[in-house]
Design a protein around this nucleic acid. Structure first.
Length: 574
RNA sequence: CGGGGUGUAGCGCAGCCUGGUAGCGCAACUGCUUUGGGAGCAGUGGGUCGGAGGUUCGAAUCCUCUCACCCCGACCA
């Protein structure tokens, strides 16, 4: 492709709306342009790179036995009402009506559609297992679109769904996808690490997220320094601390704590450690409020709470808190609370005798003893893991935390959707049973952003050969010179005949402009044809990675590119 | 949804406080020179100052409303 006749707009300065490295580079290099918040146009370079990612995904999915289909983005309300998610999904799901006021959804995902398809087409164990996938546009009205294509409202996703006869079969399907994901992210030039992940309130037994470490990552990954434990912080377990006896507690004492509301304020005011305070949080599960007790120096993991309760939960409003505790926010405590369930984190057992709110404005209680002064209805691990915690798996190492971009998620779903949408089969004995499902997602457009995020330097993108929109950037430094143009054309044809995609910079621009644009675009191999060198039969070859220039004879260019390409490709192929 | 910020030429910005009819750099266009790391000189074109309403003789500037985009938060009592 000739740069002069294509559509390759570059930006000299970074647009002010972009902050993330990948966002800035994708805008500047002319991969994308923003249409509105969370909506992006893919320009030719971005679209080519995106299609390369898609091709890798397809190859690996097909190789793993998955079958490609394409489902509509627009979906009827009925399926969502059947699965129960019409009500669960909330405003994140884009809803609209047709001219007859029938309700539709712009699909945020496709479990409902695929399950109804399979339900109507597959009836026998003989037809199972099946693994179907698609690469398609998804819509989610994100609470806050961010970082360009990393969190968009319309984005491209590979979503796959497996249907098996039983849990064992689902495990096999799951593992095949897990392995395919590891291969395919590696091929994209990403260090994507699988991390144990939350299966959500919906249930499901196994789940891993594939995370690319990045500054702008929105997920917190916890990993052990001593063993191979890696997990999303959301689901990292906390081991129970040792219990401390409260047998010798002094009598309960009310203390005046005017305007001291937070743990820090009260701890400082009463000169006690936050670790000896009982933090009292009022949650609601949508129907009724309940209480969660947490040691003052620890944070509550809301996901763990939701799992323990079995429903989505949120912190209660100040009004509800007033109702439950009889006091304004900041003075809640478990002593004397009635009519609500009291959950307590295991860490509470290590307090023994503590300090907590008195359920009365501007008062706290000292010498609070567990069992003597209040009772706990249920104990559970509800604590948010912190860096420095002891590893819950090996018990030896300590945990550290990094941020990651979630590029893929594999999931054993179980029978939730097959039951709701009647995807059942008849087994060998003639019994009807629900299929056991798995689902497997890849944020394809986000993966592209992750590739840029991970592969760049201060001058621009440094594409891995597998995803690069073109293999070779051929710079004709003197388009007005017949010899240079002729030599460039020959190289262009030769490289293409050898199977490489080539971007030919034939623009009437100064060399400096071309060099800077080439650095920005970041194509792996650069061939520079200039007037001076050509006179002595020499041109120049540059690898984008190193930016080191090597003189080369035109006749040797193809062999050089071939050699490097083969070498590099082998590095990206597991 | 809450808080903060920004909207002025294609891009990046100044002007706003203290009202007087819009400017800088880059880009674009023309000419000449230049041609291996974002050229020089000379010239040209381009702006509903996000939108609506108001105050005023007069509004980019002050006031009200509104829209868009960005950032932080939407979990700790």
């Amino acid at each position: 492709m000739k740069q002069s006749s294509g559509f390759f707009p570059t930006l000299r300065e970074a647009p002010k709306e972009a902050e993330a490295k990948s966002h800035v580079l994708m805008l500047r290099a002319g991969l994308i342009r923003q249409l509105a918040a969370g909506l992006y146009i893919y320009l030719p370079l971005g679209w080519r790179a995106l299609r390369n990612v898609e091709a890798i995904v397809r190859e690996e999915m097909d190789a793993a036995g998955a079958i490609e289909v394409l489902m509509p983005s627009l979906q009827p309300d009925l399926l969502w009402k059947q699965s129960g998610r019409w009500d669960v999904m909330g405003p994140e799901m884009m809803r609209l009506q047709d001219r007859n006021e029938r309700e539709f959804v712009l699909g945020p995902t496709h479990e409902e559609v695929i399950t109804s398809l399979v339900a109507s087409e597959i009836r026998s164990y003989r037809d199972l297992p099946k693994n179907l996938y698609q690469i398609q546009t998804k819509f989610r009205d994100e609470i806050r679109p961010r970082f360009g294509v990393v969190r968009a409202r319309e984005f491209i996703m590979k979503d796959g769904y497996s249907f098996d006869v039983d849990d064992d079969g689902a495990g096999v399907s799951y593992q095949a996808m897990y392995d395919a994901y590891a291969r395919l992210f590696h091929r994209c030039g990403l260090t994507a690490m699988p991390v144990e992940a939350d299966t959500g309130v919906m249930g499901g037994s196994r789940s891993h997220e594939f995370m690319v470490p990045a500054e702008i990552g929105e997920s917190e990954i916890v990993s052990c320094g001593a063993c191979d434990y890696r997990a999303n912080r959301e689901l990292t377990e906390s081991s129970a601390p040792e219990s401390v006896s409260s047998a010798n507690a002094l009598p309960l004492e009310e203390v005046h704590t005017p305007n001291q509301r937070t743990i820090e304020e009260v701890a400082a005011f009463l000169k006690v450690e936050p670790a000896s305070m009982i933090k009292t949080l009022i949650f609601t599960d949508g129907e009724k409020p309940f209480v969660v007790l947490m040691r003052g120096d620890c944070a509550v993991n809301e996901i763990k709470v939701a799992k323990a309760v079995g429903k989505p939960v949120e912190l209660a409003s100040p009004e509800t808190i007033q109702q439950v505790t009889g006091a304004p926010v900041g003075f809640a405590g478990p002593v004397g609370l009635t009519g609500v369930d009291v959950w307590a984190d295991l860490s509470i057992k290590s307090i023994g005798v503590g300090v907590t709110g008195a359920n009365k404005a501007d008062y706290h209680l000292k010498n609070v003893a567990i069992d003597r002064d209040f009772t706990v209805d249920r104990w559970a691990d509800l604590r948010l893991a912190e860096p420095g915690d002891v590893c819950p798996k090996c018990g030896k190492g300590t945990l550290s935390m990094t941020l990651g971009i979630e590029v893929g998620h594999v999931f054993v779903l179980g029978t939730k959707y097959s039951t709701a949408l009647n995807a059942v089969y008849t087994d060998e004995k003639g019994e009807r049973r629900p299929m056991v499902m798995g689902c497997y997602g890849i944020g394809v457009s986000r993966t592209l952003a992750a590739v840029v995020e991970e592969n760049s330097d201060d001058k621009g993108i440094v594409w891995p050969v597998t995803v690069a929109p073109y293999h070779v950037h051929l710079l004709n430094l003197s388009p007005k010179s017949e010899e240079v143009t002729k030599a460039s054309a020959e190289l262009y044809d030769g490289l293409r005949a050898a199977g490489f995609s080539v971007l030919l910079d034939d623009r009437d621009e100064r060399p400096g402009v071309k060099f800077n644009d080439a650095d920005l675009l970041g194509l792996p191999y650069r061939v520079i044809v200039g007037e001076k060198g050509l006179k002595s039969g020499q041109i120049e070859f540059v690898q984008r990675k190193s930016l080191e220039k090597e003189p080369i004879a035109p006749a040797d260019v193809i062999a050089r590119v071939k050699g490097l390409y083969a070498e590099e490709l082998s590095r990206f192929t597991p």
